[in-house]
């Protein structure tokens, strides 16, 4: 099983998925991330999936789970860089990401988190 590295940039955690995710890696990532959000006091999580070639229902559910979990830990989640083919397939599959925020690329994801931070309560 491969572990996905979690990078920290200021108060944002960045996960760039570069491997073909198997179900074990997905579960491990969820656990690792929850720990890091708490220990780093992160206010935002960005998951970069620009290298991900397919998302099935299991991986799709991971995004919703991570977002829900992070929200409880007071962090916003943004999924960035979804490929058109992946997006079309998800729609056909009938899978919505359950209100997960998305952005076209990493830069726009960071901007979105800043925007959300401005609107939210000061911390």
């Amino acid at each position: 099983m491969e572990r996905v590295p979690i990078l920290k940039l200021g108060d944002i955690l960045i996960i760039s998925i570069q491997i073909d995710l198997d179900d074990q890696s997905v579960l491990a990532l969820q656990e690792d991330l929850a720990d890091r959000v708490v220990s780093a006091g992160a206010r935002g999580v960005i998951i970069d999936i620009s290298a991900v070639e397919i998302i099935d229902s299991f991986i799709g559910r991971m995004f919703a789970t991570i977002a829900g979990m992070c929200r409880m830990l007071d962090a916003e989640t943004v999924v960035v860089g979804m490929r058109p083919a992946v997006a079309i397939t998800l729609v056909e599959l009938g899978l919505s990401l359950g209100g997960v925020r998305t952005a076209l690329n990493l830069e726009k994801g960071v901007a979105l988190l800043d925007h959300l931070g401005d609107r939210g309560t000061p911390r």
Binding site: M82, P84, A87, L90, S96, A103, L104
Partner: peptide, 12 residues
């Protein structure tokens, strides 16, 4: 409709 939903998934 699917295109609009797919674009939304991508963040547009």
């Amino acid at each position: 409709l699917k295109t609009v939903v797919a674009a939304r998934l991508m963040g547009a």
